[in-house]
């Protein structure tokens, strides 16, 4: 699902897509369409591509152009005026105070186990030991026994990035038995393996667990993994998904940012398992 959604924002990347776009946009360009350019985080990009599509429906002469390149590109392009809006999947740092951030949503990451796993909680050090291969059997942790099946995410995934930064681990130090792509695959693997441990977006974990999938999100530092904990930023592994601009937005850009923060796109935010602001 995420994969299917994530392709459209690559328009203009490949030759084929480019030519198709060129054909499609002939009609629009005759009208000298206005374009809003967004660049930056690949975590935010799929969401903005979907929001952009919906916004375009009500603004026939407007084109929303979404390009990825990481949060740092988002900051750089917004500063240099190369993009109207930068996409940044973290809070702005002190040196970035010249920009203004508008928070779209929160993304939290929780560790999940199979429901039948007797382990109730893991410390920061235990998680690091498990994922770097220092601890290989559940019997070394506490209740339960059997070889731990460590599930990691593929390179480039935002949850991997957040996990590595939070625990200060290098990607090459992770000793995994399984690598998966998106959250749903990750959940399928855990649901099918009582000895496995993995991590996913909290939104997806809560949703799937609610549907009866046999997984169990673990609390972190004593905070339960819930949507509310993410929203209130009490959960340790949370980050903001932001749109950043250099100066106070005006006109259609302002309208678009307000739209992206509004109730009208809550369903799109939830489709990507992010937690909407406020509601």
């Amino acid at each position: 699902m995420i994969r299917a959604i994530s392709f459209p924002f690559r328009k203009g990347r490949s030759f084929l897509a480019l030519s198709v776009m060129a054909l499609l946009s002939v009609a629009a360009s005759a009208h000298a369409a206005e374009t809003i350019v967004l660049t930056g985080s690949s975590t935010v990009a799929p969401l903005m591509a979907e929001i952009g599509k919906r916004f375009e429906e009500t603004h026939p002469n407007l084109r929303i152009d979404v390009q990825t390149g990481g949060s740092s590109r988002g900051v750089r392009d917004a500063r240099a005026g190369l993009a109207d809006i930068g996409m940044v999947s973290r809070p702005l740092t002190d040196s970035e105070r010249d920009l203004t951030a508008f928070t779209l949503a929160y993304d939290g990451v929780a560790f999940i186990l199979h429901k039948s796993n007797p382990v109730k909680t893991l410390t920061r050090q235990q998680i690091i030991d498990i994922f770097t291969g220092k601890v290989r059997d559940w019997s070394e942790i506490g209740p339960g026994r059997g070889t731990i099946v460590v599930e990691n995410k593929a390179e480039g995934r935002s949850t991997l990035e957040l996990f590595l930064t939070h625990f200060d681990i290098k990607s090459s130090d992770v000793k995994a038995a399984v690598v998966v792509g998106d959250n749903q695959e990750a959940i399928k693997v855990i649901a099918g393996n009582p000895l496995a441990i993995g991590y996913v977006s909290i939104g997806s974990a809560v949703t799937e667990a609610g549907l009866g999938v046999p997984i169990k999100p673990l609390p972190m530092d004593g905070v339960e993994a819930t949507i509310d904990a993410v929203k209130q930023k009490r959960f340790p592994l949370v980050r903001e998904l932001n749109l950043v601009v250099r100066k106070q937005p005006e006109g259609v850009v302002k309208e678009f940012i307000a739209y992206a923060q509004s109730d009208q796109v809550t369903d799109l935010v939830k489709d990507l398992y992010y937690v909407p602001v406020g509601h």
């Binding site: 994969r3 390149g69 390179e155 480039g156 935002s158 690598v179 792509g181």
Partner: peptide
């Protein structure tokens, strides 16, 4: 032992891959 094939590698990583990756 676990294994990754080229096709699986493409499918796993392309959605969020940038630049030279």
């Amino acid at each position: 032992a676990p294994v990754r094939t080229l096709a699986a590698n493409i499918a796993l990583e392309i959605p969020y891959a940038e630049g030279l990756h």
